[in-house]
Design a protein around this nucleic acid. Structure first.
Length: 441
DNA sequence: TACATACAC
DNA sequence: TATGGTGTATGTA
């Protein structure tokens, strides 16, 4: 009997354990996959419209993606990140149990110093075109208006109009997945020349308010309107920004959104809106207090998740935890996060951009034929030589980047003694980096 | 210098 | 059928 009972107990325990283990594995996989979805930037929570059925959208995206090599690769990366987070968490818990009195005082001093250096004299405006590519397509083809539409291809979308965003369609989403979310979605191909043309037009308008404006991308500009305000005392920052946006609309029939702030710029009121943050420390800190850290430019999916795992979700919480961040992160990350937590952005707009690299990359279907790879190398070296010639550049470091069929990215780099710029030389050096093929065969 | 990772758009 | 292209910064070895 005893034996039997014992056996039974053991059996029960074992089966319970097994069951628990299975549950754990199932749950863990489920959580992992959710994390992967989030990592893929397909989480509709971020940016865009709020009134989307997030659950439904995520489910569709998951069903389409889950078996793919792309998803598998993302999952591997997610696992690696999870390990890193575990380490950081461990250190964090340890630090949390320390008094850290000295460090806390030190952090207070650092913050006070930075606070007293805060420059509130400059009025910086960040102008951002609404769904730029999509809006340009609607402009040139009004029939597309009020219909769900995205710019790109079945493989990849650049932008979606607001009608399409209601279905969860987003930039950086493959078109074929977008079509599952919205079967009436119209996908139009990109026309970069046209976007550049309008971008140029928009920058000319902006130059009237600050000739030293700084383009941040094809559809985004930073400008300093302090001088303009001094020269035109009857204007307020809001009024300048309104007029500027109106002028853009008048001349291009495209809408822009803007953030006005002394040192932190945000696009809280999109589309076709603007938000002003007064040049006043209290208002800046109040704004930051509940601002999700992921909204800060420079904090992407990885950093956001790392911080979230430490229980830090807002800039206010970030500020409160800076003592620990200083110990847990690398100096430059710490410096960046410290500035972000205080809302210290740029107060100087500089547009002395100097190119540091130039590149060409092409994605092609899976192959392991050397000839095809060499043909590709030839193709990109031609395009690169062309671009290099246009800008009168030369270089002596050549990097070859390879994406495998499992979406792993490998780079191999070779630095040579003299500067080159001709296609033949680029191709030759590219071929020299051939041990990249060895990985294959 | 070589390579990887993160980030923005 | 199918998950891009260009450029920058930074950490690590």
């Amino acid at each position: 009997m005893d034996n039997n009972n014992n056996n039974k107990n053991i059996n029960n325990n074992e089966s319970n354990n097994n069951k628990d283990n299975l549950c754990d594995i199932d749950d863990k996989n489920k959580i992992d996959d959710e994390n992967v979805l989030y990592r893929l930037s397909l989480n509709p929570n971020k940016g865009g419209l709020q009134n989307v059925d997030k659950e439904k959208i995520n489910k569709i995206i998951y069903e389409v993606s889950k078996g793919s090599a792309f998803f598998k690769n993302a999952k591997e990366k997610e696992k690696a990140h999870f390990e890193k987070i575990k380490e950081i968490k461990k250190k964090y818990l340890f630090l949390k149990n320390q008094p850290m009195e000295y460090e806390k005082q030190q952090m207070k001093n650092i913050m006070n110093k930075m606070e007293s250096d805060r420059d509130l004299s400059q009025y910086i405006v960040h102008v951002d075109m609404d769904a730029f590519y999509a809006s340009v397509e609607e402009l040139d083809n009004p029939e597309l208006k009020n219909k769900p539409m995205a710019v790109g291809s079945k493989s990849m979308l650049s932008t979606a109009n607001y009608e399409a965003r209601k279905y969860g369609v987003r930039s950086a989403m493959p078109g074929y997945i977008a079509l599952k979310l919205c079967k009436n979605l119209i996908i139009v191909p990109t026309r970069f020349e046209r976007y550049h043309e309008l971008s140029h037009q928009i920058r000319n308008i902006i130059a009237n308010y600050d000739p030293d404006y700084c383009p941040a991308s094809i559809d985004e500009v930073y400008l300093n309107i302090t001088n303009f305000l001094n020269d035109n005392p009857n204007y307020t920052p809001s009024k300048v920004t309104e007029e500027l946006r109106e002028e853009i609309y008048k001349q291009t029939r495209l809408t822009a959104s803007a953030g006005i702030a002394p040192n932190i710029c945000s696009d809280m009121n999109k589309p076709n809106g603007q938000t002003e943050l007064k040049n006043c420390t209290d208002e800046i800190l109040k704004f930051l207090k509940d601002l999700p850290i992921g909204k800060v430019s420079g904090i992407g999916k990885v950093a956001e998740k790392t911080l979230n795992e430490l229980g830090i979700k807002t800039c206010g919480e970030l500020k409160e935890n800076m003592v620990y961040i200083k110990e847990l992160f690398k100096p430059s990350s710490y410096q960046f996060l410290l500035s972000a937590s205080l809302g210290l952005g740029r107060t100087k707009i500089e547009n002395k951009w100097k190119r540091k690299s130039i590149s060409v990359e092409r994605t092609f279907s899976n192959t392991s034929e050397i000839q095809k790879l060499e043909d590709k190398l030839h193709e990109i070296s031609c395009k690169l030589a062309n671009d290099v010639k246009k800008e009168n550049l030369k270089g002596k470091s050549v990097t070859l980047k390879l994406k495998t069929s499992s979406f792993e990215i490998l780079t191999r780099c070779l630095t040579i003694s003299k500067y080159i710029y001709q296609q033949e030389d680029l191709y030759k050096v590219g071929k020299k980096v051939k041990f990249i093929y060895i990985i294959f065969f």
